[in-house]
Write a protein that binds this DNA or RNA. Sequence first.
DNA 1: AGTGAATATAAATTCAAA
DNA 2: TTTGAATTTATATTCACT
Lengths: 155, 155
Amino acid sequence: MKNNRQNLILKIVSENNIGTQEQLQQKLHEHGFDVTQATVSRDIKELSLIKTATASGNFKYSVPALTKNSMENADGMILTMLSNGVVSVDYALNTVVVKCHTGMAQAVCAKLDSLKLENVVGTLAGDDTVFILMRTENDASRLVRELGTVIKTDD
Amino acid sequence: MKNNRQNLILKIVSENNIGTQEQLQQKLHEHGFDVTQATVSRDIKELSLIKTATASGNFKYSVPALTKNSMENADGMILTMLSNGVVSVDYALNTVVVKCHTGMAQAVCAKLDSLKLENVVGTLAGDDTVFILMRTENDASRLVRELGTVIKTDD
DNA sequence: AGTGAATATAAATTCAAA
DNA sequence: TTTGAATTTATATTCACT
């Protein structure tokens, strides 16, 4: 349950402008998770979400980029989260297809974008699938291989 | 004065583990800047510092790095390229000006584009100069600062 | 373990002032 | 515009309970 909730949090902060834990709590409530601010605070800490000012003069929680550093953070929580979201990775020609659990594609896509991967032409996320258009077939192949080493899919 | 203080803040949070504004205030005091928490809070907002949990279970303020992912990738090729081509970086209002060696601006511009920097409205390269139009003046200021930390200019 | 209620702490903002 | 003092608001933690 906690895991589901934290996955949802990643999705929520990726897709919305969440400035306070109360707002996040409210969003969680809309999705059927009734937790207190205390829990939201703990979740944010465990996920190592970052809080920062935006150009528009507000604050915003975001998913941290997946660096070596952030993997070390929070007992690899983020990595785990990413892993939990992904079902499988495949490619055809120069397009990589990341299959996700329903509703997780947006969050996974945000995470992948944050990696600022090379030779990515563009990304597109539906509900349970992310498309990554790579420059060349070689790039696609390499990316699938690289993701394979990082992401533990849940089969 | 404010500028000096904010520069010092960047230095302090880079070199120390600052978890609260009070700690930062204390460090500033040691360097002769006597300001209140209110000011520290404003500075943090203006600098868009990020607050996030660390592996050790504490919180920490950090400088938002454009480099963490993008520059560590690609075997530092991009970094090398930029360093070799760039002479200086400056800005006025929301436009960043990257002075390059003659004929290098196009290449530098392409490299900068490849970084997919946030809040970039557009870029334009001449022969020895790249213009980067940022969303806001703050964005410009931050980009210059960030580039400054990454790019070794050849003077 | 994970959580909520209450609380302590930290951080953002308001308001007045220089 | 920049700031401090006071205040409000937000966030982290403590403690009890499950």
